[in-house]
């Protein structure tokens, strides 16, 4: 079983220059790895740094120390030191991310938002749209909405567009930031099935799930982020 993601001794803090250079430590000595076909869940109380870890792993947050090794294009790349170009390539081909909130674009239809990552990987637009339609219907998004830009959708509808966008590709690593937070029971079950399918296909998944039921059904193991917390109150 391969290990497509290895995180070792990662430290992250924020320096708030607008508040007199106040340094806010977030996490320290984060070390774990992720195997193909497993779903690990980040655990711990809120504010402990779970979302920050996902953002570091996706390259949105820079880190102070440590390594984030990602198996990409036949080798390992340290995301912490990779060039922006390399990070974009890793995101395109290897590393997927379902964020909590959809960043909507003006005038782009929901189905095209979903199809985009596949087209970016060289798939024909028609094929990508067919696949997007399949995912959206599986997630019970009314077909009347597919051609509309998702800016005016409800929270749950936007989240389903976001999930479809994250699952349309076969990225080997998938980061999930509370993908089921605003979904009803039926759609939560669909997402759980989709995660199961991806595990079967050998994808390494790392997620944050506040819903105990969902967490219990998808998690192979829990990574307790409290152990890495650099904040004294949280660590206590």
């Amino acid at each position: 079983m391969s290990t497509p993601l290895v995180v070792s001794e990662v430290r992250k803090s924020f320096t708030m220059h607008l508040r007199g250079g106040l340094v806010l430590p977030v996490v320290d000595n984060v070390s774990f790895s992720l195997k193909a076909g497993e779903c690990a869940v980040l655990g711990g109380p809120s504010g402990v740094g779970k979302s920050s870890i996902l953002k570091m792993l996706y390259g949105n947050y820079a880190i102070d120390a440590g390594q984030i090794l990602i198996e990409h294009a036949g080798g390992f790349v340290d995301l912490a030191t990779a060039s922006p170009r390399a990070v974009i390539d890793i995101r395109r081909a290897t590393l997927g991310y379902v964020s909590q909130f959809l960043r909507t674009l003006p005038r782009v239809a929901a189905i095209d938002v979903v199809a985009e990552p596949l087209i970016a990987r060289g798939e024909a637009a028609e094929t990508a749209r067919d696949k997007a339609a399949e995912l959206l219907s599986r997630l019970n998004l009314p077909e009347a909405l597919w051609r509309l830009p998702p800016a005016t959708f409800s929270g749950g509808e936007q989240q389903r567009v976001n999930i479809a966008r994250g699952f349309i590709t076969d990225h080997r690593i998938l980061l999930l930031d509370e993908p089921t937070a605003s979904l009803d029971a039926v759609n939560r079950a669909v997402v759980v099935e989709m995660i199961e399918a991806r595990k079967q296909a050998g994808t390494a998944l790392l997620g944050i799930f506040h819903d105990d039921d969902v967490r219990a059904r998808v998690a192979d193991r829990i990574i307790d982020v409290s152990a890495f917390s650099a904040r004294k109150d949280a660590a206590a």
Binding site: H17, K55, Y61, P84, I88
Partner: peptide, 30 residues
């Protein structure tokens, strides 16, 4: 995809657009 932040004629911060905007490092960028 990528961003350079300029102040007083100098590039003070550069990097992936997401990173610069989500985790700005320099006082001016913040």
């Amino acid at each position: 995809h990528r961003m350079m932040v300029m102040k007083d004629g100098r590039v003070i911060e550069a990097g992936l657009t997401d990173r610069v905007l989500d985790d700005p490092r320099e006082p001016y960028t913040q």
